[in-house]
């Protein structure tokens, strides 16, 4: 993903560092420093940009010391996840594995061990990189993202959260505090197909699928694609083709054929648009078949 403008520097410009001790303090710092401030929530996306001098915030407000943002809780009808929960915590949590297995499965595929130990779900979502895995996962799970700002707290549905490459609906002075993942009802089976060249790479294309089955038919279907547009892309044609139809291989196959409908994916060294369209279809088929047999 040769996105960077050319630069061989790996030494960031000078910046101030503030370790916020609470969300309120972080918001205060964002208000105080305005454009100059950036939140640090793990750093695996922001720091490389700074080292390349593509980002040069004057103040880094680190959320890493706010222990209150690091939790995974059973909240009755949903899983409540603190925004500073690391990928590794999601991957290894028995609660996540039991209640939202797709999330732990996908978190285990993010980057490498070092990234998973430092990177956080809140940081990943706020960064809004369409090549990242978790934006697709929270979208297919119809999660909600809790953001707090000077005017209080609001819950943003994942479906409307991602606006463009590296752009979300967050206001500049807001901090993501929690992710709420609703529990599935009925017999739901989900999976994530991440197609990459090397284990630690970003997806060339990824497909997250969630199927709710009911007596040989598909009651509900969620299909969201990674890295085929400027945001996670919901494959509505596939979902519509599946919903209410039979849960047979033939039906899944016919639906998967529509996975590339309307897509206009960006090309990159590891995958041309043409190849990505093909991958969208084949990976959707594989994901649906896996979900069906799971």
């Amino acid at each position: 993903m040769a996105r960077a403008e050319w630069s061989s520097a790996m030494i960031p410009a000078a910046f101030d560092y503030i370790a916020a001790s609470s969300v309120d303090e972080a918001i205060e710092m964002l208000q105080k420093h305005g454009d100059q401030a950036k939140l640090l929530a793990g750093g695996h996306s922001l720091l490389p940009l700074m080292k390349l001098r593509l980002a040069a915030p004057g103040v880094l407000v680190d959320l890493g010391k706010i222990e209150d943002l690091r939790y995974i809780r059973d909240a009755g009808d949903h899983l409540a996840i603190g925004s500073m929960t690391t990928h590794y915590m999601l991957e290894s949590s028995a609660l996540v594995q039991e209640r939202v297995p797709l999330l732990s499965h996908a978190a285990g595929m993010v980057g490498d061990m070092q990234v998973r130990n430092r990177g956080t779900i809140g940081g990943s979502l706020a960064h809004a990189d369409p090549a990242s895995d978790l934006p697709s996962i929270v979208t297919v799970l119809r999660a909600g993202i809790v953001a707090r700002g000077p005017r209080g707290e609001r819950l943003i549905p994942a479906d409307g959260f991602f606006q463009n490459t590296w752009t979300s609906t967050l206001y500049p002075e807001e901090v993501v505090t929690e992710i709420r993942v609703p529990y599935a009802s009925g017999r739901t089976s989900s999976t994530y197909q991440k197609f990459r060249q090397r284990a630690a790479d970003w997806a060339i294309v990824g497909v997250a699928v969630s199927l709710t089955l009911d007596n040989g038919s598909v009651r509900d279907a969620g299909v969201v694609l990674t890295n085929v547009g400027s945001t996670p892309v919901r494959a509505t044609a596939v979902e519509e083709a599946l919903r209410g139809g039979p849960s047979t291989r033939e039906a899944l196959g016919a639906a998967a054929e529509r996975a590339a409908d309307g897509l206009n994916p960006p090309g990159e060294l590891k995958g041309s648009p043409e190849y990505k369209l093909h991958l969208a279809r084949i990976l959707t088929l594989r994901a649906l078949e896996t979900a069906l047999s799971g």
Binding site: M1, A2, A4, Q197, D201, K270
Partner: peptide, 9 residues
């Protein structure tokens, strides 16, 4: 174009 270990596989 393959100026880093991200792109140089």
């Amino acid at each position: 174009l393959t100026g880093s270990m991200v792109d140089y596989a």
